[in-house]
Design a protein around this nucleic acid. Structure first.
Lengths: 250, 250
DNA sequence: CTTGAATCGAGTACACCGTACCCGACTCGC
DNA sequence: GCGAGTCGGGTACGGTGTACTCGATTCAAG
């Protein structure tokens, strides 16, 4: 599984207008039979149920019971549809942060929230979000997060850097590894056991060859990973490091 | 840019055979005009130069001056070609680790090596490697890494976990964010300045709306990111946390 | 109430993709 | 020599995003 390119959101301005609902309604003409929301929702439903590669304009159109080309009355193209799907799914933590959580608790909460968002919508992991399109939901999430870590003794720029490192870097990377593997099983019909069994012969041949002494000496349980546990462990390490950094400077 | 699905390497066993050179040569028939290496190399060249979405069987065939379907004499399909490309690119650090580096130094070195690998081959970031196909190069890299961090007071399983967290999680995630953004500019022809300028009107409207007080109060330089610097900073935090963990238990 | 401009849904068509299937040409072991 | 096995690669099918087009609908203006 690799990444389908949409060209980085062909018409960014149009995406933003649609996200923020800035298109002025026409007065003449027939009533639209569809809604932008319904289309975006259908796209999310398809991606959730069948993965990103099953998301096609024809498929979404069929889902809402319309002709394929009718979608283009609401959305400039597939890239923009994806932008809209991302922001819709990116709704901030339902409950606000409980007060008095402290910056470390808030960062943990945000990290786990993102982790669970990727669990609900694994297709998000394969959407290039390097250039974030700032929709209302994404912006709201950032706003709430900034408010919750206000007590950290960091500059504004450092706070943004920390968010990039933890959320954009660590959490996304770990989630990608973990959930892609998890969903690969059902998507391909090849279970984890089957997958590793297929590699076993080559692996054991490599072990006994003597070319890989370190690998050969590894204890048996080294390859059985507990994704969630590893995620929490690494998050702890990262926050420990950050805590030391903050204390060191005060 | 999103992720094109190959179905998780349709024929894993065949991929492994090709990687390890286990196919027994036929004795009858004409001499092959192509080489597996040449095809894989051409694929890498195309992906390096024009991105993952430009990588098609027809494009690779044209690159090596052959008919499209001729490639299927050497490779079962596109998924397996990608597997081969990944392992070929995944050659371990050219120079071995200098002795006496210590586990922390070794982990830093590995992390930076991966970072630079992603810099050279940004398409790698959009290949799903959740289920790693263990080719000779990948295995060699793991072997060398394990040898270099042998002095860490960690169990075998913990070492693997640490590698997953740092390399599979943090480094990959940060590299994805950074290099996808970096190459989005040239791929789409929209510079970073243009990209942010397009969002500026909506952003400033949101700021002045009063709905986003925290965002509005951010200092001006908060959005100017230094990817490499952020990467090093986060890596330091992670390793600080790990160092504390190791010392705490001894 | 009529009329025309604007907007609707959607069919057709094109260029691209991965690849199943097939066949003629080549080359060696017998 | 000759036939089995392997080579290159052409053709064709079902999929993709979407440009272009056109008839049907609806409201504002006369």
């Amino acid at each position: 599984m690799t990444s389908t390119d949409h060209t980085g959101s062909g018409d960014l301005a149009r995406s933003l207008e649609l996200m923020w609902g800035l298109d002025r309604k026409p007065t003449r003409g027939p009533k639209p039979a569809l809604t932008l929301d319904r289309i975006v929702g259908a796209g999310i439903a398809v991606a959730d149920a069948e993965g990103l590669d099953a998301l096609s304009m024809r498929r979404v159109a069929a889902e809402v019971g319309a002709g394929t080309m009718s979608l283009y009355r609401y959305v400039p193209g597939k890239a923009e549809l994806l932008d809209l799907m991302v922001d819709k799914v990116n709704s901030p933590c339902e409950s606000e942060f409980p007060p008095g959580l402290g910056w470390r608790g808030a960062l943990e909460r945000v990290a786990r929230g993102i982790w669970q968002m990727y669990n609900r919508h694994p297709w998000l992991l394969n959407v290039d979000q390097a250039r974030p399109v700032l929709g209302p939901n994404s912006l709201r999430a950032l706003e709430l997060t900034l408010a919750a870590i206000g007590d950290a003794a960091l500059s504004d720029r450092e706070k943004m850097t920390v968010l990039t490192i933890i959320d954009g870097g660590y959490v996304s990377g770990m989630a990608r590894t973990h959930f892609n593997a998890k969903h690969a099983a059902q998507r391909t019909g090849v279970s984890d056991e089957q997958f590793w069994a297929a590699q076993a012969p080559i692996l054991s041949a490599a072990m006994t060859s003597g070319d890989y002494p370190e690998l050969a000496a590894l204890s048996q349980d080294s390859f059985t990973a507990d994704g969630e546990g590893e995620f929490e462990f690494g998050l702890g390490l990262l926050l420990d490091g950050l805590e030391a950094f903050v204390e060191r400077r005060t």
